[in-house]
Design a protein around this nucleic acid. Structure first.
Length: 943
RNA sequence: GCCCGGGUGGUGGAAUGGCAGACACGGAGGAUUCAAAAUCCUUUGCCCUCACGGGCGUGCGGGUUCAAAUCCCGCUCCGGGCACCA
């Protein structure tokens, strides 16, 4: 195209003054400053020791600020993505300007399914695709002007990074959890304890009598990571294992709609449950929001109670877990999960005499009833089981004895009891548990209340507190006391023990994928795992594998993709008895692995000897104000509230126990940014239409003339409501985008994107520019005379307010105060005093670094504004000689008085009462009381 | 059902016991302009009043207080998380 030079657009641009701050000018200075900053290493943060050593680093308080690093998606960014990144950037810049030594960088969480899927479709290696995506995302982020130390950036897919992920895995593999010391210890120390007999083996056989293989098996039982059986989604038709999200609700593969089978497979598990209590307790020392802490607490799900043993008519003991042992006297039935292992041992040949019809499920024998019921339950999908709120079950024909009173109660199996929680068996106390109540009502089971409900209680099961009734020696005790008494009794009589259970499960750590970290594990002929020696790391992914699906028959064993790398699957190592060929572990690690410790690598990214230098780690991760330590500010989305944050805390604690890091927690302060939402529009058929083409008219919304309905949702392709940062760069520039995103509202709140509102932020920058620079010559117009007193005061009030708002991450308020100051400058025809101009530009520095840097230079300053000092308010200008105060009568503002700011209470009262309007209002009334709050208001109570 | 957030003008939001609606978008009017864009100025919670002024108002109902968007109790609606967890 060669007509562009004569388009109306560029003509109108030509008519604008040469130095007007518009999109083209913004683009020009932004790109130029970004180049300059990179060249000068403006954002590089030095360490006090080691290869990045810098002088005087320790003079300034350190601050480690971090974002949850992104997955480099091929779709690129939309304006919702960088909200948090801009927030941390503004904060980091502010802190840098207030004398802190700030570390702020960014990396990429780059392993993951999409790159692998892309490889399958195109044959392109996942690494190539990943690196392309990283480059594109890096370009989009760079254009925002984020002040990251790019020399510290990492991607989890870097071999030099995942080498250390593997190393950490080995630390975990070579450790065990000493419950007595409440910490992880090297497995070698366990060997010593087992040898001396200070610890008993798990298998029961003395260590000294064990052979080599037996000893290895014994140690494997103790390790913090171990091999367990867990089901995978095996799709023989594709010859691959699928992730849950690749399986449809109907249990078929999303790709090709082939049948998928749940098959057990040996997989690595991480013993996170060993840390349950510490993960729970240390939450108290973290500066996180209550909602996130609560979510973690709920996920860990600690509950205290008792295990109680019931003897049965058929012989075996049934063990139940209960959080309400105080209700034991109200037990009128026993309910097991249908898949409970004791069921078969409990059922007798025949139904006992007088078994009600409703209990047998119509079966001739208990065994038949169990078989039928299990069949019935297995045919229900998980969804049906969830939706099915009516409780069903069958009687086993057996009884058990309630230990505390010898009452014989019937044993059932029922679908509402889950095998995966507690012991898979429940003592049914219908009086105190609604589920038990429902079940008892249906099957005619007795109900005995054991807690006295309030007189006005008209519900069914009563779960509240109250005095115990019908409970012999517990009668009159409230729940907490009753629990203690009954647990003591159970322990004394040998019927039970005080116990704690958790909802938290061990972490399933294997994935059947190619694009993940290989395990540094090999197997010898015993089939037991052996660690690849540390000096042999990294274990690199094989370069090429065959991506084509291959059909296998239904009975085939599931196999991870790495099984196809025929040469790679074996490896020769010398593990102490000469070079031997071993079988490699074929699973890879989950995406969580790389994100569990990336913050540590930022500190010392090029260290070839250690994952991080201990002195460097201590410098950046410890807290001088008595905090628990860790990253000083970690910003990210709430969707990682549980898993990522729990896994990272777990790894960090293991590293801490083993002496590799200095503190027990990775993230001292966590902040959840909100999401940017955008309006999405659906036509009459419910199809989303391009949001950009929708027009608003008379309160309605129209797309190509037809009415559409509006809703709000996450930005993205599916809702056709994406706005890209690139569009904003070309319409307004990066500074405007940054300013708008920060101005939209508080950082932690969701907010709707409105492209039409962005102009407001652009105008602010234009006005600032015009107040300081001649649009025709580009020369600054500031003068060296002092500002008028009123402006001087406004300036210092603004400085104080902006600083405070920045500290609290309330950037929207900071911008509002700056706007007020600038509006004042616009209103006045007089040229701006240099003092005001300098401070205004400094305050803008963190928010809009490019225009601020440009103005800083044009004002004649040398050196980057990035390292200039943020202004401090002069207290002398914050105190006004006289102030205006409202005067209230009976709480309503009726007048205002102007008084000396240091006026005494008596003086204020006099001034208020002598005010003309107040006197009018008070005539004929009696003054009962006068409340004087100096510097705030006067309130006169009269009647 | 349980847990965690939240409800303030036409819109995004400000004010954490002391002047509700800062700041911005949008709207209305004006200046400038041949005209438009851009820019600048005025105005903009609702109701009554020509006006001065007054009344009402922070999801709803109650309470504490001289004073409540803010604290307490009950309800309601919206968003997020978990879900038969014994």
């Amino acid at each position: 195209m060669n007509t562009s030079s004569s388009t109306p657009d560029s003509e109108s641009e030509d008519l604008q003054p040469a130095f007007r701050y518009n999109a083209a000018f913004a683009d020009h200075i932004e790109v130029e400053w970004q180049r300059q900053w990179l060249e000068d290493g403006t954002y590089e943060a030095l360490n006090p020791f080691g290869p990045r050593e810098g002088q005087d680093v320790e003079v300034h308080p350190k601050l480690f600020i971090m974002d949850m690093f992104p997955y480099p998606s091929g779709a690129g960014l939309h304006v919702g993505h960088p909200l948090g990144f801009i927030g941390t950037d503004v904060f980091a810049r502010y802190k840098r300007m207030t004398g802190h030594h700030v570390l702020h960088t960014m990396g990429f969480d780059a392993f993951g399914l999409p790159a692998e899927e892309h490889a399958r479709q195109t044959g392109e290696h996942p690494r190539i695709n990943t690196e392309t995506n990283i480059a594109n995302m890096q370009r989009q982020l760079d254009r925002l002007g984020l002040g990251h130390d790019k020399t510290r950036s990492i991607a989890t897919t870097d071999v030099s990074y995942y080498r250390w992920t593997q190393w950490i895995f080995l630390q975990i593999f070579q450790s065990w959890y000493d419950t007595e010391a409440a910490r992880a210890r090297p497995i070698s120390e366990l060997e010593e304890l087992l040898t001396t007999g200070e610890r008993d083996t798990r298998s029961g056989r003395p260590w000294l009598e064990m052979g080599d293989v037996e000893r290895r098996e014994e140690l494997d039982e103790w390790r913090l990571t171990y091999l367990g059986e867990a089901p995978v989604n095996w799709c023989p038709a594709l010859g691959t294992v699928l992730a849950n999200e690749e399986v449809t609700a109907e249990g078929r593969s999303e790709r090709g709609n082939h049948p998928v089978f749940r098959r057990p497979m040996k997989q690595w598990m991480m013993r996170i449950t060993a840390y349950a209590d510490r993960l729970l307790e240390d939450l108290d020392h973290l500066d996180w929001t209550d909602s996130i802490k609560t979510m973690q607490r709920n996920w860990i799900g600690r509950s205290e109670g008792a295990q109680v043993r019931f003897t049965t008519s058929s012989g075996p003991m049934i063990e139940v877990f209960t959080t309400r042992p105080d209700t034991l006297f109200g037990t009128t039935a026993m309910v097991l999960a249908p898949e409970h292992p004791l069921v078969d041992a409990l059922v007798p040949e025949m139904w006992p005499e007088g078994t009600p019809q409703t209990w047998t499920g119509g079966a001739a024998t208990p065994n038949e009833a169990v078989v039928n019921y299990r069949q019935q339950v297995s045919e229900m999908t998980d969804l049906e089981r969830q939706e099915n709120q009516t409780k069903t079950g069958v009687y086993l024909g057996a009884h058990c004895s309630v230990p505390v009173n010898g009452l014989q109660v019937p044993v059932f199996i029922a679908d509402y009891v889950l095998m995966g929680y507690g012991t898979g068996a429940v003592m049914s106390v219908p009086g105190e548990d609604q589920r038990d109540w429902d079940f008892a009502k249906k099957y005619g089971i007795d109900i005995i209340r054991t807690v006295e409900p309030p007189a006005d209680f008209d519900g069914e099961a009563y779960v509240g507190d109250g005095p115990a009734i019908n409970s012999d020696f517990l009668n009159g005790l409230y729940i907490d006391d009753a629990k203690q008494v009954i647990i003591d009794w159970l322990e004394r009589e040998g019927y039970g023990t005080r116990t704690v259970t958790y909802k938290l499960r061990d972490w399933l750590f294997s994935r059947q994928r190619y694009w993940g970290e290989p395990f540094p594990i090999v197997y010898d002929e015993t089939g037991l795992a052996l660690a690849v020696p540390e000096n042999q790391l990294p274990v690199q992914l094989p370069e090429l594998i065959d991506w084509a699906p291959r059909a296998l028959d239904e009975d085939s064993e599931p196999e991870p993709p790495l099984g196809r790398a025929t040469e790679w699957v074996t490896a020769a190592y010398d593990l102490g008895n000469g070079e031997v060929t071993y079988q490699r572990e074929l699973n890879t690690m989950p995406q969580w692995a790389g994100s569990c410790w990336y913050y540590l690598r930022y500190l010392d990214p090029s260290n070839e000897e250690q994952f991080v230098d201990p002195a460097v780690e201590r410098y950046w991760m410890s807290n001088s104000d008595g905090g628990i330590g860790g990253v000083d500010l970690y910003v990210g989305g709430v969707e990682h509230a549980v898993l990522h944050l729990l896994y990272a805390r777990f790894w960090h604690k293991v590293l801490y126990d083993l002496g590799h890091v200095s503190g027990p927690e990775p993230f001292q302060r966590l902040y959840n940014q909100g999401y940017i939402q955008a309006a999405a529009y659906q036509d009459e058929r419910g199809i989303y239409v391009d949001a950009e083409q929708v027009v608003e008219q008379d309160g309605g919304y129209f797309y190509e003339g037809s009415p559409v309905t509006r809703s709000f949702g996450k930005m993205g392709k599916s809702l056709k409501n994406s706005v890209t940062p690139d569009e904003m760069y070309s319409a307004y520039g990066a500074d405007t985008l940054r300013l708008y995103e920060m101005f939209m509202g508080p950082l932690d709140q969701d907010r709707p994107w409105e492209t039409k509102s962005v102009i407001g932020s652009h105008r602010l920058l234009q006005r600032v520019w015009r107040n300081l620079v001649d649009e025709h010559t580009g020369e600054v117009t500031v003068v060296d005379s002092a500002p008028p007193d009123a402006l001087q005061r406004l300036l210092h009030r603004t400085i104080a307010a902006v600083g405070e708002a920045m500290e609290d991450l309330r950037f929207n308020s900071a911008i509002a105060r700056i706007t007020e100051l600038n509006n004042e400058l616009s209103r006045s025809a007089a040229p701006v005093s240099r003092e005001v101009a300098q401070n205004l530009v400094l305050m803008l520095g963190p928010l809009v670094p490019h225009i601020a840097e440009e103005l800083w230079k044009r004002l004649g300053n040398s050196g980057s504004i990035v390292h200039a000092r943020f202004p401090e308010a002069d207290a002398a200008f914050l105190i006004d000689e006289s102030i205006e105060l409202p005067v209230q009568v009976n709480g309503k503002v009726r007048s205002r008085i102007v008084v000396a700011s240091d006026a005494t209470e008596t003086a204020l009262q006099e001034a208020a009462l002598s005010d003309h309007r107040i006197q009018e209002l008070l005539s004929g009334t009696e003054i009962r009381k006068v409340i004087v709050i100096p510097k705030k208001l006067v309130n006169i109570v009269a009647s």
